[in-house]
Simulated scan of single mutants.
Amino acid sequence: MKDLASVSQTMAHTRFSPICPLTGSEMHPGLTVPIDWRRPADRRAWQIWWNETDGFGQVFPRPRPSDVASFYDIDAYYTHAERYTPDVADEARRVGTLGRQLGRLAWRFERGAEPTSAWWRSIIPQEAETGLEIGCGDGDRMRTFGPHLKSVRGVEPDPRAVAVARSRGLDVREGTAESLPAAIRSSLYDLIVFSHVLEHTLDPVLALANARDLLSDNGVMSVEVPNMASEGARRMGPRWRWLDVPRHLNFFTPDSLKACAEAAGLRVRAVLYRGYVRQFMPDWLIDEARITAEMEGRDLLQADIDRQVRHSLGLFAATALADPAKKYDSVRVICTRD
């Protein structure tokens, strides 16, 4: 485990021939993302290098830790809920009747493992008392699984999100998955949660290894990431909403997520999927239309949204009855220490 973490750290400072931190095999150029669509004034292109055998990708060259915070300086990011409120009615109007019907149709075929309060109750060990969420944002998930435990704590790198979480009465400390605060490292936890966090880390193996060291003997860890094996990701390529480079630095399939957990010394007990309906909701359709327009260097037009609705109708036809690995936009593993 230490050797793999060392390989990943070495890779972060090497500009050529990156090595996969999961297996040590060579990676090769994959997708090129022409700009950060959320910050179109920054015209830098980003390269995703890919390990085809293991289904794992990384942005390369790796950014410096000091640069990462600037990637999140955008009003519409989800951890900045206090600064941005979407106009849901306007989004529904812009996608039209067909766009609105897509979401309703998709509900009929939704079978994903949504992380509801009841779902959390089903996986939390019966005698569990303590929980930790790493990358907890403003604390919404902590308030969902927290009632099933005596105490919950969170770690979050964004100071604005930390402030929102604390204003809600939650115990949240500022820090990262690779460098957890000392106060967090002083305890063991019966539940540890990574929800769409591992893709943001500079060193995903180290992030999970740090968490493993804090997992109690009978504890469980839930790790969820975007699913690069999904049909939506395949069809949209660099325009896929969940790609979100450069905030997302690592890219997983179900197989590579399992491999990452195993490289960190965890045992994968279950592989679950979620995120079907949201691929057909107005905000998703508009964002993917906007990504296309931004990458072409022009303003978003109604024609772009109409085109995206038609594209998504084809995606629905191809995925409604598909295998879960192709259908859902996210994959989740449930892990234990051994």
Results as ranks from 00 to 15, higher is better:
Thr176Leu: 03
Val193Gly: 09
Phe109Asn: 14
Gly169Tyr: 11
Asn218Pro: 02
Pro238Val: 01
Phe316Arg: 03
Gly96Thr: 09
Leu102Asp: 13
Glu296Gln: 09
Leu215Phe: 09
Met228Glu: 10
Ser222Asp: 13
Asp3Pro: 15
Val95Met: 08
Leu285His: 08
Ala264Thr: 15
Leu132Asn: 08
Ala177Glu: 12
Ala325Val: 07
Arg234His: 13
Glu127Ser: 13
Phe71Ile: 05
Asp329Leu: 05
Asp203Gln: 13
Leu249Trp: 05
Leu149Gly: 13
Asp323Leu: 06
Gly237Ala: 14
Gly175Lys: 08
Arg212Tyr: 09
Leu257Thr: 05
Tyr276Gly: 04
Glu296Ser: 08
Gly219Thr: 02
Arg290Pro: 00
Val164Asp: 05
Pro157Asn: 06
Val331Gly: 10
Gly169His: 07
Asp299Lys: 09
Lys150Phe: 04
Arg241Asp: 06
Pro125Phe: 07
Glu296Ile: 01
Val95Asp: 07
Pro61Val: 01
Ala207Ser: 15
Arg104Asn: 10
Ala325Trp: 07
Ala45Trp: 02
Ala322Asn: 03
Trp37Pro: 08
Thr292Met: 10
Met228Gln: 13
Val164Met: 06
Pro204His: 01
Arg173Ser: 12
His28Ala: 13
Val277Asn: 04
Val155Tyr: 12
Glu294Phe: 11
Tyr273Met: 09
Phe280Glu: 00
Thr292Tyr: 15
Ala293Gly: 10
His248Ile: 02
Glu288Thr: 14
Arg235Leu: 13
Val333Ser: 13
Glu294Tyr: 04
Arg235Phe: 03
Thr292Ala: 14
Thr79Ala: 11
Ser256Thr: 02
Trp242Lys: 03
Arg234Met: 08
Gly103Ile: 13
Gly154Arg: 01
Ala317Gly: 01
Tyr72Ala: 02
Trp46Pro: 02
Ala12Arg: 13
Thr336Pro: 00
Pro125Ala: 10
Thr253Met: 15
Ser195Trp: 03
Val220Thr: 08
Thr292His: 15
Asn51Leu: 09
Arg39Pro: 00
Asp73Val: 07
Lys2Cys: 08
Asp67Gln: 12
Ala45Val: 00
Ile291Asn: 06
Gly103Met: 07
Pro40Lys: 06
Thr32Gly: 03
Arg83Phe: 05
Leu208His: 00
Met281Pro: 09
Tyr77Gln: 01
Thr253Phe: 11
Leu31Tyr: 06
Trp240Lys: 03
Ile134Lys: 12
Asp283Met: 07
Arg241Phe: 09
Ser167Gly: 14
Pro18Asp: 02
Val277Arg: 11
Ser256Asp: 12
Arg166Gln: 14
Leu301His: 12
Gln279Arg: 10
Pro157Arg: 04
Met236Ala: 15
Arg212Gln: 05
Leu105Cys: 07
Arg212Asn: 12
His148Tyr: 03
Gly137Asp: 07
Arg108Asp: 01
Met1Ala: 05
Ala259Trp: 01
Phe56Pro: 09
Cys335Met: 03
Lys150Leu: 03
Tyr72Leu: 06
Asp90Thr: 09
Leu180Pro: 08
Arg173Cys: 04
Glu52Tyr: 02
Ser117Glu: 11
Ser17Pro: 02
Met27Arg: 06
Ser122Tyr: 02
Cys20Leu: 10
Leu315Thr: 06
Asp138Pro: 04
Val333Ala: 11
Arg267Tyr: 05
Arg38Met: 11
Pro65His: 04
Ala229His: 12
Arg239Gly: 11
Glu110Met: 11
Arg121Ile: 00
